[in-house]
Computed example of a mutant assay.
Amino acid sequence: MPERAGAGERDAVLRAAGLPAVDLAAVVAGQDDPLVFATVSGAHLYGFPSRDSDVDLRGAHLLPAAALVGLHEPEETRTRMWDRDRIEMDLVSHDLRKFARLLLRRNGYVLEQLLSPLVVHTTDLHRELIAAKAAAEHGPAGDVVDPGRLRTDIEALHARLDAAQAATALPAAPAARDALHDLIVRARLDGAVAPTGRRAAASAER
């Protein structure tokens, strides 16, 4: 599973996302089994890292066939936590078989890991998984369900939603707006978030 050229470009993307200048290639090389991919998750992916944010790495690895064909259950998910250059890091990876099963369960978290733009390590298998996901996402629905049946079901669901909306007794707008407004004003003016005993003592002093 050769590494694709362009490591310098990936490093630039990682630095732009606020990743510390730590040798992540050494982290990849130190794993017991080859990684299919490793990407960054957590605060750096979501765009709000702080100076003390740890580095959350997620990915998939490839166990040897001997670990899967015998009686012993392999450790399909591995978690490793360590400090490197005074940076807290963790790596959680699944064996490729388990990762594929999670994908088939429509697990959004593993999709996020697969498609993260913050790539630490990639391989041909990683790119093949991404391509398969893209092909399935934009493939014809007729391969899965009859288009006529799909249209009929969607129209029926729209009709049920319209009927439920017309019959509902719920108000068109929330009725508690004024009560919530009063609660917020009272909280700000009276210090309602103070511990109960402290509020009682303050009331007594008045």
Results as ranks from 00 to 15, higher is better:
A169N: 10
R10G: 10
R84D: 08
Q165E: 14
R78W: 03
H44G: 11
S93E: 05
S53C: 13
A5I: 03
T196K: 08
M89R: 01
V28R: 00
S93Q: 03
A67T: 01
D178A: 11
N107A: 04
T77Y: 05
K133Q: 14
E205N: 08
R80D: 12
Q165T: 04
R105G: 13
R80Q: 13
D95C: 08
L45P: 04
W82H: 07
E205H: 10
P34H: 01
H181I: 04
D153L: 12
I154Q: 08
A202I: 02
R186M: 07
T79I: 15
L180V: 09
H61R: 02
A204Q: 06
I154T: 06
G59H: 00
G197M: 04
A202C: 09
A172L: 09
K133D: 13
E9K: 04
L14A: 04
A100L: 14
L104D: 10
P2L: 04
A175E: 14
V13I: 12
L62V: 07
A175G: 13
D83M: 15
M89C: 15
R105V: 03
A164D: 13
S41K: 04
L183D: 11
E75T: 12
T123W: 00
L68D: 08
D95M: 05
G197S: 09
L19I: 05
L68Q: 13
P74V: 02
A204L: 14
P147Y: 04
P117W: 05
Q165L: 14
R97W: 02
L91E: 02
M89L: 15
K98P: 03
L19W: 00
E155P: 00
R199D: 06
I130K: 04
K98C: 08
R149I: 02
D54K: 00
F37Y: 10
M81E: 15
A12H: 07
P34M: 04
I184N: 06
A26I: 00
L189R: 10
M81I: 14
E137G: 10
F99P: 01
A65E: 12
D143C: 12
K98E: 11
D52E: 13
V193G: 10
R10L: 08
L180Q: 06
P20D: 06
L71H: 09
D85H: 01
A66N: 06
L129H: 00
R105P: 01
R97H: 09
E155D: 10
M1F: 03
R160F: 06
A29Q: 01
S53Q: 05
D85G: 07
L68T: 10
D153T: 02
E73H: 10
H126C: 11
H158S: 13
A141N: 11
E155G: 03
V13M: 11
V185S: 05
P64E: 06
V36E: 12
S93H: 01
D190W: 07
R188I: 04
A132T: 07
H61T: 03
A163M: 02
D182K: 05
T123P: 04
L103I: 00
G42W: 02
